[in-house]
C-alpha cells in the first residue's frame, strides 16, 4: 500500500509537469488550431535564457519573471515572422514549419550552450516533506502548485477579461471577429505569446528534475501530447488533469506491470494516445462542436 501511495504521489509530481506543457499546447491549439510541435523546444530555450541570467548573478525570481517576459515576446515574434506567412496553408505545411522550428531551436541551443547536461536550481527547499511514510519532494509540490496557479490565472484571463474573450472569439470565428472590430492577427500572436510564457514556466519547473540540456523536452513533449489528448485538446483544465492522470498511470504501470519497468514507460504514453483517439477522440473533457442551423 505504501509503495502504491508513493508511486501515486510521485506520479502526480511528474504529471503536473506534463500538464503544464500540455496546457501550453492547448493554448495555441485553442487560439489558432495549430498543434505546436516546437512547444517543448521553445520552453527549453527559455530555460537556457534563465540559466544565463542566473549565471550572471540575477536573483532567481527576477530571472524567472524576466524569462517569462522574454518568452512572451519571442512567442509573439515567432507567430508574426514564421507562422503568419503560412497561416492559410494546409495543416501539413504548418506542422512541417513547427517541426522545422523544433530542429532549429534544438540545434541553436546546442550550438550556444553545448549538449552537456547542466544542473538547474529549484526555487523551493531541498528537504522533502513527509506525511506518515510518504515523501513529498518540496520541488514537486511547488511545481504542481505553480502549474495550478498558472491554470487559474489563465482561466480568469479568458473567462473574465475582454481581451481574453476577444482571443476566444478570434479563434472560433475569425470572420465574425473582424466584423466586431477585433484585430484577429494580433489575437493569434498573443495566443502564441501566452503559450510560450506558459511553456517557459513549465521549462523552469522541469529543468531542476531532468537537468538542463537541449533534448530535455523531447520525451516530455510526448507525455504532454498524451495528456492533452486524454484531457481533451479543447480544455485547458482537462489538459492539466490529463497530465496528472498520465503521470500516475505511467508510474503505476511501470511499478506493477513487470515487463514494462522504466524502459517501456514512454510506450505507455503512446498507447494512451492511441486508446483515447480510438475510444473518445475529444478526450475526457473536450467539447465536440455542435451546431444548430
Amino acid at each position: 500500500m505504501e509503495i502504491f501511495l508513493q508511486q501515486v504521489v510521485s506520479g502526480l509530481a511528474t504529471g503536473g509537469i506534463y500538464g503544464s506543457v500540455a496546457l501550453a499546447l492547448v493554448m495555441i491549439y485553442q487560439a489558432t488550431d495549430v498543434v505546436n510541435f516546437a512547444q517543448g523546444e521553445m520552453a527549453m530555450f527559455s530555460t537556457y535564457l534563465a540559466w544565463s541570467m542566473l549565471n550572471a548573478g540575477v536573483p532567481y525570481w527576477a530571472a524567472f519573471f524576466a524569462t517569462l517576459a522574454v518568452a512572451f515576446v519571442c512567442g509573439v515574434v515567432i507567430e508574426r515572422v514564421v507562422i503568419r506567412p503560412v497561416e492559410n496553408a494546409p495543416v501539413l505545411t504548418i506542422v512541417i514549419v513547427c517541426i522545422g522550428l523544433l530542429v532549429i531551436l534544438n540545434s541553436v541551443a546546442g550550438w550556444i550552450y553545448s549538449y552537456i547536461q547542466k544542473p538547474f536550481p529549484s526555487p523551493f527547499p531541498e528537504k522533502p516533506i513527509t506525511i506518515g511514510n510518504i515523501f513529498f519532494g518540496a520541488h514537486d509540490l511547488g511545481a504542481l502548485g505553480v502549474t495550478l496557479l498558472v491554470l487559474l490565472l489563465l482561466y480568469v484571463f479568458f473567462r473574465y477579461t475582454t481581451l481574453g474573450l476577444a482571443m476566444r472569439a478570434a479563434a472560433q470565428n475569425p470572420v465574425s471577429s473582424r466584423l466586431c472590430g477585433i484585430r484577429v492577427g494580433w489575437m493569434l500572436a498573443l495566443g502564441w505569446g501566452l503559450a510560450a510564457l506558459v511553456g517557459a514556466v513549465a521549462g523552469l519547473m522541469i529543468a531542476p528534475i531532468v537537468f538542463l540540456d537541449p533534448t530535455m523536452m523531447s520525451g516530455i513533449l510526448i507525455y504532454a501530447f498524451a495528456s492533452a489528448t486524454l484531457g481533451g485538446f479543447t480544455s485547458p483544465g482537462g489538459a492539466v488533469l490529463g497530465g496528472l492522470l498520465v503521470g500516475v498511470i505511467e508510474n503505476l504501470v511501470g511499478t506493477y506491470v513487470k515487463f514494462i519497468g522504466t524502459e517501456l514507460k514512454l510506450t505507455v504514453a503512446l498507447a494512451m494516445i492511441l486508446v483515447v483517439l480510438l475510444v473518445r477522440p475529444s478526450g475526457l473533457f473536450g467539447r465536440v462542436a455542435v451546431h444548430r442551423v
Partner: peptide
C-alpha cells in the same frame, strides 16, 4: 455594423459574450 448572411454567431460563446463582442470596438 454588418450582420452577415448566415448570422456569424459565435456558437460556442454565451449570448451575453456575443453581445459583449459586438461592443468590442
Amino acid at each position: 455594423a454588418h450582420v452577415p448572411e448566415g448570422r456569424g454567431t459565435f456558437t460556442q460563446l454565451t449570448v451575453e459574450e456575443n453581445l459583449r463582442l459586438g461592443a468590442y470596438a
